[in-house]
Amino acid sequence: MKKITSVLFALGLSVFLGTSAQAANDDAAVIERIKPVGSVCIEGDSSCGGAAAAPAATGGSRSGEEVYNTKCAACHATGAAGAPKYATSDWAERGAKGLGTLMENAINGLNAMPPRGLCADCSDKEIRNAIKHMVNSAK
């Protein structure tokens, strides 16, 4: 009887240890599957260890026409969401408000237009150039 008890104990112990090892392997597999695939580091965030990439250099200011064509035209060419259409009297009316007001509206956003329009990477000078380009298109 003692031998049977020993065999059963050894069998139970091996099942317990095998299950425990399998659980550890399963946990490791789950941890591996749910780990983050990357991280985001915002420029100026010191907790990133300097890993934030510097903004891409544009090689100088883009012209108003270039900014308009690549960023502003998405809405201003069609008048989407009430945007004043390029090359229409809409811009003559806005030009009368003055460049300062137009700059403030473009940088802070106005109505459906988000701040800086669709040009988050534009400098203030590039936004000014694009506004001048649109105002000069007025008919």
Rank of each mutant, 00 (worst) to 15 (best):
V7P: 00
A10L: 14
F16Q: 08
S20T: 12
Q22D: 11
Q22V: 13
A24S: 15
A24F: 13
D26C: 05
D26I: 11
D27C: 01
A28F: 04
A28H: 07
A28N: 08
A29R: 11
A29E: 15
I31W: 08
E32H: 04
P36M: 10
V37M: 01
C41R: 03
G44V: 03
D45P: 02
D45Y: 04
S46A: 15
S47I: 09
G49Q: 06
G50Q: 10
A51S: 09
A52Y: 05
A53S: 11
A53K: 11
A54I: 03
A56C: 05
S61T: 03
S63H: 03
E66Y: 04
N69V: 02
A74S: 07
A74N: 08
H76N: 01
A77V: 00
G79C: 12
A83P: 06
S89L: 06
S89W: 02
S89P: 00
D90R: 02
E93A: 13
E93W: 02
L99H: 11
G100Y: 01
G100T: 04
L102D: 01
L102Q: 04
M103Q: 11
E104C: 00
N105H: 13
I107G: 07
L110E: 14
N111Y: 13
M113L: 11
M113C: 12
M113F: 12
P114E: 12
P115L: 11
L118D: 15
K125H: 13
R128F: 09
K132N: 14
H133R: 05
M134I: 01
V135W: 05
S137C: 10
S137M: 05
